[in-house]
Design a binder for these strands. Structure first.
Lengths: 164, 164
DNA sequence: TATTGTTATACTCTATAACTATA
DNA sequence: TATAGTTATAGAGTATAACAATA
């Protein structure tokens, strides 16, 4: 990798880092009265999506958020403490729990989504629709590469285990 | 904000979130043998920049990273424990400490920067130089908006205090 | 008084390992 | 045996508040 390419990559990725940290800080502050972090926005948003009235399993949420299922458990503990979500055991496979919004969770979401909307407006002020799409396209490609990196690492680990 | 715009913004920002989280996880794993996190990459990279041989103050690092100076302190504690950085008191203003790489820190950086380079290669596989620049331009604009949001919040807080 | 850096404290997010219940 | 979820544990990163030293 040439020096110039390194500096370009560094500038981009370092700024993405700082930007996402700012998103977390300013986003969480934006909804400070609701005491919800941006990670929690993601969970509530997923559960509020049309077509998921029955809820999502813990594993599905973990895959959706790209984090471990133990991490999701912690998030759900905090959301349940605030009485916004609940876990319901599935009858046909009793290992599975469906995570759903409570009545209070649905009520909060209708408020929260408005707050998030105004936050997005401020964050993307000056961006045309086309620019947002272009931005997302570039982000997706980076994300795909990173998923590839993660997968290769997991395969190496599995391979090592198999060799033993 | 229209429903469609909300969904576009949501898709973009949520994916940025997940992508940056993946960057942290895969990046930290990439240099696992060195036991360095991506945040620590940033600090070492800043201190290794040409023209900063005398080091940077704690406040300068905090502004550079967009985090509190107390947070920087914690990062520096961990880096000092690994003997990679040191704080040197300034003679003319004895409140100020300049943070510098140690000899070991410089040696590690020459290794680390190679590792980071190969990581960037993998992360940005398939991206043209022009695309990286475009990506960074969009990220910068988002970052600027978020800084504006943060500043407005701080001004509101100050205003409240002044009123009291 | 204001600024620089530090200490103290708290909380969220993240991970991995080991466990229980169920299939 | 394998899978879904949970519990236990650890550590980093983030923040705010209060303090000491210095200007």
């Amino acid at each position: 990798m040439s020096d110039e390419r390194f500096h370009m990559a560094n500038r981009l990725l370092f700024r993405m880092f700082k930007t996402t940290n700012l998103m977390h800080v300013t986003g969480t502050a934006w909804t400070a009265s609701l005491k919800l972090t941006t990670q929690q926005w993601s969970v509530l948003g997923a559960l509020a999506s049309p077509g998921y009235d029955d809820g999502l399993t813990v594993n599905e949420l973990a895959e959706y958020l790209f984090v471990s299922r133990q991490n999701v458990n912690g998030l759900l503990d905090r959301l349940e403490q605030a009485k916004l979500t609940e876990r319901v055991q599935n009858a046909s496979d009793r290992r599975v729990r469906f995570v759903r919004l409570t009545k209070k969770g649905k009520a909060i979401w209708s408020n929260l989504s408005n707050e998030i909307g105004s936050y997005y407006d401020a964050a993307l002020d000056g961006f045309s629709d086309e620019e947002i799409v272009q931005f997302q396209y570039l982000t997706d490609r980076l994300m795909t590469n990173l998923l590839q990196i993660r997968e290769e690492k997991e395969n190496r680990k599995k391979g090592t285990i198999d060799q033993v």
